[in-house]
Design a protein around this nucleic acid. Structure first.
Length: 284
DNA sequence: CCACGGCCTGATTC
DNA sequence: AGAATCAGGCCGT
């Protein structure tokens, strides 16, 4: 159980990155965070310019390129932030959370999480993801920390709607079961959506059960390499109405087009900053 | 294309 | 206290 370090030169704040609603698997335990990526348990601790980690992956050094991808350390965040800061509301949000980064997640767990996210709150999403992993996923542990792997689409499909309902998914059970089944039967590789254009990948997602505009845009942004994606939930809509004098209750597509024009090719980053800032403001 | 009601569930508000 | 509302929507009509 050795500790390994990933040295980087990028703004990175684990707390805001993990708690800004893009991912639901990370838990804080003292100065360490633990979570599961793929089949492996990861523990992370941040020091200036350095990410310290422990993992069940062997050899441990194999995790370094994976973390590099996961945290999108290939994005030059400073220059993205500079270009987004032409917008004063976004600039203000960046000022508060300069180390908030978008993550590059695995598409299936990401899709599943956001199918579960409809009409509910973050606490309950975490609970549902947790229940799915505990009931259907393999156990992984390091030292005293034990977590469970998020089950594959095949395992979820085999479990079936009734079992998912018993895990507390409610009406989302049918959506997740159906989508898992389609993905398994067509051996549809969600990763292939990365190679498609934003519009093509989006249309493909929209055909899946439980996936509408908002869920599709979350999956595109958080796992499919589409940084122009601009998911609009209640919070983001609220910000647009309050800070940009956007009329209330405009249709989703109209708002999305406005935002992509306003914020440009990295509109998704703007969304993440605005969303997180607005939510924290409410709690204050 | 838009508007509307129903839907699982748990916490919070009225 | 018990009902309505809210919470990171989607689906069918």
């Amino acid at each position: 159980m050795i500790k390994v370090k990933l040295i980087h030169n990028q703004p990175l704040d684990l707390a805001s990155t993990f708690q800004s609603g893009q991912v639901f698997v990370w838990r804080q335990d003292g100065s360490w965070w633990n979570g599961v990526l793929g089949d492996h348990l990861i523990m992370l601790r941040e020091q200036p310019g350095v990410l310290e980690f422990r993992t069940t992956l062997r050899p441990e050094s194999r995790l370094i390129p994976l973390l590099y991808r996961y945290f999108r350390l290939d994005d030059d965040l400073a220059s993205i932030q500079a270009s987004l800061s032409k917008d004063t509301r976004v600039a203000e949000a960046i000022h508060h959370y300069p180390g908030l980064r978008l993550l590059r997640q695995d598409p299936w767990p990401c899709l599943a999480a956001f199918i579960c996210s409809s009409n509910t709150n973050i606490l309950r999403i975490i609970k549902m993801i947790d229940q799915l992993s505990l009931a259907l996923g393999q156990v992984v542990s390091i030292g005293g920390v034990t977590r469970s792997v998020f089950p594959s689409a095949t395992i979820v499909a085999d479990a079936g709607e009734v079992a998912l309902r018993e895990l507390g998914l409610g009406y989302r059970a049918r959506y997740l079961a159906e989508t898992a089944k389609i993905i398994t039967e067509n051996s549809l590789k969600l990763e292939r959506l990365r190679e498609m254009s934003f519009g093509d990948a989006r249309n493909c997602l929209l055909k899946m059960a439980g996936v509408g505009d908002k869920v599709a845009d979350c999956v595109l942004l958080f796992s499919l390499e589409k940084p122009q994606s601009f998911p609009i939930d209640r919070w983001v809509r609220r910000v647009l109405e309050e800070s940009y004098s956007i009329p209330r209750e405009l249709p989703y597509q109209l708002l999305m087009a406005w935002a992509q024009n306003q914020f440009g090719p990295y509109a998704g980053y703007a969304q993440q900053y605005l969303f997180h800032r607005r939510r924290v403001e409410t709690k204050l």
